Amino acid sequence: MEISFYQYLMTERDPYKKDDIILFANEAFNDRIFPKQSEDYDEVSRHLEMNGDYLPSLTIFDEAWEIYQTRYQEK
Rank of each mutant, 00 (worst) to 15 (best):
S4C: 03
S4P: 01
S4L: 01
F5T: 03
F5N: 00
Y6E: 03
Q7T: 07
Y8A: 01
Y8K: 02
M10G: 03
M10R: 09
T11Q: 09
E12T: 04
E12C: 10
R13M: 08
R13H: 09
R13Q: 09
D14S: 07
D14L: 02
P15I: 06
Y16H: 12
K17V: 08
K17P: 06
K17S: 14
K18A: 15
K18S: 14
I22V: 14
I22D: 05
I22K: 13
L23Y: 06
L23R: 08
A25M: 02
A25Y: 05
N30Y: 09
N30E: 14
N30W: 08
D31V: 07
D31K: 07
I33G: 13
I33S: 15
F34P: 01
P35E: 05
K36V: 10
K36I: 10
K36Y: 11
K36G: 04
Q37R: 14
Q37M: 14
Q37W: 13
S38M: 03
S38D: 00
E39P: 07
E39C: 13
D40Y: 02
Y41I: 07
D42H: 10
D42P: 07
V44C: 04
S45V: 10
S45P: 09
S45I: 11
R46Y: 11
R46V: 10
H47L: 05
L48A: 02
E49L: 11
M50K: 11
M50S: 14
M50F: 07
N51G: 07
N51K: 05
G52R: 00
G52Q: 00
D53C: 09
Y54W: 15
Y54D: 00
Y54C: 00
L55Y: 01
L55M: 03
S57M: 05
S57A: 09
S57R: 06
L58R: 05
L58A: 07
T59K: 14
D62E: 13
E63F: 15
E63V: 10
E66D: 11
Y68A: 03
Y68K: 01
Y68Q: 00
T70R: 14
T70Y: 09
T70I: 12
Y72C: 09
Y72P: 07
Y72G: 06
Y72V: 04
Y72Q: 08
Q73H: 12
Q73S: 12
Q73E: 10
Q73N: 10
Q73D: 09
E74D: 13
K75R: 13
K75S: 12
